[in-house]
Computed example of a mutant assay.
Amino acid sequence: PKLVQFGASVFLFPHPVKELVPVAHEVGAHVNYDAAHVAGLIAGKQFQDPIQEGTDTMTMSTHKTFPGPQKGIVIASHDELAEKIKKAAFPGMTSNHHLMHVAGLAVAAAEFKKYGEAYSKQIIKNAKALGQALYERGFQVVCPDKGFTKSHTLLVDITNFQDSIGLGADVEQRLEKAHIVANRNLLPWDILEKRNYLNPGGIRIGTQEITRLGMKEADMIVISDLFKAVLVDQKDPKAVAQEIKEFRSEFQKIHYGFETSLKAYEYIKIV
């Protein structure tokens, strides 16, 4: 192969980069690591560092665990490769760098430099705590033998709700009615079970945003109880939505960032 690619959209655990990079390089393959989902955890020193483990490049987005505006970044392992990528990117494939995002990205980077390590640690603590709490309430959170996750993400097998609620799309929509945002997601074995991405056997949950709002491990227990109310107890989602509104009212500040008088998600009227 000319290219060997690491990375995933459900990135629960580090990949065997150190072990496989030498094999790829033996046959002259370029090795890239797609860090779109875990870039913030890498920057916060809480996840594997692929460049240090031998990859040639790392691609990433700046709006997931790295909490900035939507952009993409390519990091190269050495200067000569970086120059080739620069020339390919501009003028080869892009015409500008979307100047309106630069200030926001600079602020996000400055905030992350100061608070990113603490933020990343808490993201993972919350993910593990939420995985455990959901598991204790009867949810089939994958990889319980591995502590559920070493990142911000949890993957839950919801096929036990197939007869009562449905599969991933049905569960996703029911949760949304209760103001819980999760997304349907394929399980690794879904294709074998003849399920597809339109209504798969799983849902994916992330903790980066609730962590930014200041939630800690104890709050993950509350959240798991809300999941249980909607899916296991099958309470009216609208009634649960009211409970969530009350719970969420206690978290109105963005944490792990510079001080501001604005509330989280407050609309800023410009004109």
Rank of each mutant, 00 (worst) to 15 (best):
P1N: 15
G7N: 04
V10L: 06
H15Y: 12
P16R: 11
E19A: 14
V21Y: 09
A29C: 14
H30F: 12
H30G: 04
D34R: 07
M60A: 15
G68F: 01
I75R: 10
A82Q: 13
K84G: 09
G92P: 12
H101P: 01
V107A: 11
E111P: 03
K113R: 12
Y115P: 07
K125D: 15
A133R: 02
E136M: 08
G138E: 09
G138W: 09
C143P: 00
G168Y: 00
D170L: 05
E172L: 03
Q173I: 04
R174M: 05
H179S: 11
A182R: 00
R184E: 05
L187G: 08
N196F: 10
G202M: 09
I203E: 04
G206A: 10
Q208R: 12
Q208P: 12
I210S: 05
T211W: 07
G214Y: 02
V222E: 11
S224Y: 00
L226Y: 11
L226D: 05
V232G: 05
Q234V: 01
D236Q: 00
K238I: 04
E243N: 02
E243S: 05
E250C: 10
Q252L: 08
Y256S: 14
T260Y: 10
T260D: 14
A264L: 08
Y267L: 15
K269S: 15
